[in-house]
Amino acid sequence: MSMLRGFLILVLFFLLGEALRLVFQVPVSGGVLGMILMTFTLMLRGRVSDALALSSQALISILVLLIMPGVVGVFFMASRFSDQWLAMAAALLLGTFLSVLSTLLLMKGVMRLSAREQGHD
């Protein structure tokens, strides 16, 4: 029962996010708006109910299951673009390598800088 109650809260926040998206015409999905709202609400309340913690954990642990139907589409629909596979492969592999490298170096560098600054205070 408590898991279902937590699920209801998640669904309500999702619907609230969708409603905001439709009213204010933001190009961000209802799920993300709901996530932001959820985080702020919890920050204001200062605690998470057991029901909510339980159902969020359950959903997060099956994220892989939830994206599977979309992933499977690749095997059935991607052949249309086979003439550009080299450009796509390069963009995905090299591009992702570079962006992971950039993120790690940026984050590490900025963290070191801001830590040094705090050391001076």
Partner: peptide, 17 residues
Amino acid sequence: ITLLLGPATVALGIPLY
């Protein structure tokens, strides 16, 4: 199944908090 992706995205707000 994919429908649950919406509430699952909202659920990510909990570990975040």
